[in-house]
């Protein structure tokens, strides 16, 4: 293949720290939208924000899984392999991070690693690229990191996402953690966050 490889972080040390800090703030304060600026230009359909999270957190110890849309483009895997050194795994439950470009078509959350009762940390973090992230409306959330209640609108999502999340919540302390990236921003719904039924 003769495609030129797109560059990684301009300043690997500081860019990785900034991206991690944005993801950490998002995880510590679920259902808030944190700024996530990046100048990456990865091959489509890998979005700059998906790439930023992968480059900041994945390596040879933390394998990646790609959804069908990402896996269909060999340049995406080549880019991620070169810049992270991470293995790209076929089975979703072997991944530390799952990258999802089309959330409405992804496998159920239960297909990813949920950890064990003894080691609930050995679970997949599912990173989904969405078109829209907006705080103050949409899903009503409660849980650690949220003072009272917080609302967040996320689109698109799998049709039965609320059912999947409720099943995931019931596994606690096991479960997958969800991170959402949109152009310039990141939000998270870790396994502890409870999405309140509508109405």
């Amino acid at each position: 293949m003769s495609i030129a490889l797109a560059p990684g972080f301009t300043e690997p040390v500081f860019d990785a720290q900034r991206v991690f800090r944005a993801v950490m703030d998002a995880t510590a304060r679920p259902a808030t939208v944190q700024p996530l600026a990046t100048d990456l230009a990865p091959p489509a359909p890998l979005t700059p924000e998906l790439a930023a999270v992968a480059l900041a957190l994945a390596d040879h110890e933390a394998p990646l899984w790609l959804d069908a849309a990402l896996a269909a483009v060999p340049a995406v895997a080549a880019y991620l392999r070169f810049h992270t050194g991470a293995r790209i795994v076929e089975a979703p439950d072997e991944a530390a991070f799952a990258l999802v470009a089309e959330p409405d078509a992804m496998p159920p959350l239960g297909a990813f690693a949920v950890g064990t009762d003894e080691y609930p940390d050995r679970s997949t973090t599912v990173v989904m690229a969405v078109r829209r992230l907006a705080a103050g409306q949409g899903l009503a959330c409660e849980g650690p990191g949220i003072l009272g209640r917080a609302d967040i609108a996320i689109a698109p999502l799998p049709g039965d996402f609320l059912v999947q999340r409720a099943a995931n919540r019931a596994l606690f302390p096991r479960g997958v953690d969800c991170v959402f990236v949109a152009p310039g921003s990141v939000a998270a719904l870790p396994r502890t966050t409870q999405i309140l039924p509508e109405g």
Binding site: M24, A56, E61, A96, D121, R191
Partner: peptide, 23 residues
């Protein structure tokens, strides 16, 4: 940087599972 990434991943899981000790 590799050590930082490993610690950062542990921190994210620690926040997601409050009070659980991540190795």
């Amino acid at each position: 940087e590799q050590t930082k990434r490993m610690i950062r991943r542990a921190i994210l899981k620690a926040i997601a599972i409050p009070g659980y000790q991540v190795p």
